[in-house]
Amino acid sequence: MTEITTDTKTAASRRLCQWLFNPFKFVAGCKALLSGLVIILASAFVGSLGNTHFDGVLDVHTGREAPLWFFFAEGLINWICMAVPLLFFGLIVSRSSFRAIDVFGTQALARGPYLIAAVAMLPDANRRFGEYLTAKLTQAAPTVAINYTDVLIFAFAIILIILMAVWMVALMYRAYTVSCNIRGAKAIATFIVSLIGAEVLSKAVILQLFK
């Protein structure tokens, strides 16, 4: 009886792990695309409430005011800038035939952790600390006063964002290996090149959009 309970627990925790770090084993295609797009747009909307910009595939910045459409555009640009190079490398490197909708769908879903990052940046303490930090860096007189609670909230948000970024990259990599059936050194090398390229490209496109 105890053995069965332990086995069930192990199976349950393994399944939870798979859902957290490789949900693409269970979800891909249209389902992933639709839920991923909802997550991207929700992150952008939540981000707009606290002026949190995802102005690059991995970037999270706060402070700059912009219309709502700009936040949505940032999210979609980040997603497309990451999915297109992965699709390109997949076509070159993979020996399997795969569907583009799986690459786009799973990459959209992989951006899920940044919804949590957007929520973490909602408290006004982050905006105050951001403004205070900018004033300090530009050697201008701070226009806002901050207290210890602001510092603690900001520190918590930063730690959470770093964790979410790591989780998101892990999910993006898993999404790539599952949707294109690529493993090993080839998968790692092409993913790193795609990630760097996507980061540069998305920053450039978003900068142009803001201009």
Binding site: F24, F26, A28, G29, A32, F98, R99, D102, V178, N181
Partner: peptide, 13 residues
């Protein structure tokens, strides 16, 4: 199998 399409396709490959 309650798995995603690419997972099944990868297994077959």
């Amino acid at each position: 199998l309650r798995l995603s399409y690419p997972t099944v396709r990868n297994r077959l490959d």
